[in-house]
């Protein structure tokens, strides 16, 4: 990132190949909308390029990029609340071939259906902590709150997700 900041824009390609998949899946699993995730991902890397001078030397690039992504997703959720009826939530699971066996594929499908039952903010929290494997410390820093607060929120949301997940089984 320091090289990009110094004007060596060729290194943006490397940043893109390193983070694009994680960022795309963060948007996709948090918003559950493919077209919006396409646009958000593209827009994010344009912002990274445009605001490269705001990156502080020595800080985590991943953290900086996810902070930009989070701000974008917060705006997106705000927009969603206003125009909720205009959006259709979609299946965002990988293709069957990517998942491997049938049992895993079914489990994945069920998980994503259950995720739809969560509020946007709660879903995004689980995407960061469980799908992206981000540490509670990092999420707390990103959300400007305490680690214990994040931990409580994540645990409560898992509990809520579990209820939705096993209710799907009964239907």
């Amino acid at each position: 990132m320091s090289l990009v900041k110094a004007g060596q824009l060729d290194y943006l390609n490397e940043l893109f190949s390193r983070y694009s998949k994680r960022i795309y899946n963060y948007f996709l699993k948090s918003t559950l909308e493919r077209a919006e995730s396409d646009d958000l991902t593209q827009e994010l890397f344009i912002r990274v390029m445009k605001y490269r001078n705001s990156y502080k030397e020595g800080h985590s690039v991943q953290f900086w990029i996810f902070q930009i992504a989070r701000n974008m997703i917060k705006d997106h959720f705000r927009k969603m609340k206003i125009h909720k009826d205009q959006f259709n939530l979609v299946e965002v699971i990988p293709e069957r071939e990517d998942v491997g066996d049938d049992e895993l594929f079914e489990r994945e499908k069920k998980l994503h259906r259950a995720m739809k039952e969560l509020s946007d903010e709660k879903r995004e929290l689980l995407v960061l902590s469980k799908f992206q494997g981000m540490k509670y410390e990092q999420i707390a820093k990103m959300r400007d709150t305490t680690v214990s607060n994040i931990k409580v929120q994540v645990h409560r949301t898992i509990k809520e997700l579990k209820e939705a997940y096993f209710q799907l089984e009964e239907v």
Partner: peptide, 26 residues
């Protein structure tokens, strides 16, 4: 089961038009 399903969930590939859009913006 729920926690494991999340941590082992597969990632979707970034569509080519998104990649091309970013590369062209660069």
């Amino acid at each position: 089961e729920v926690v494991e399903a999340m941590s082992t969930s597969g990632d979707v590939e970034v569509p080519f038009h998104v990649q091309a859009g970013v590369l062209s913006a660069i």
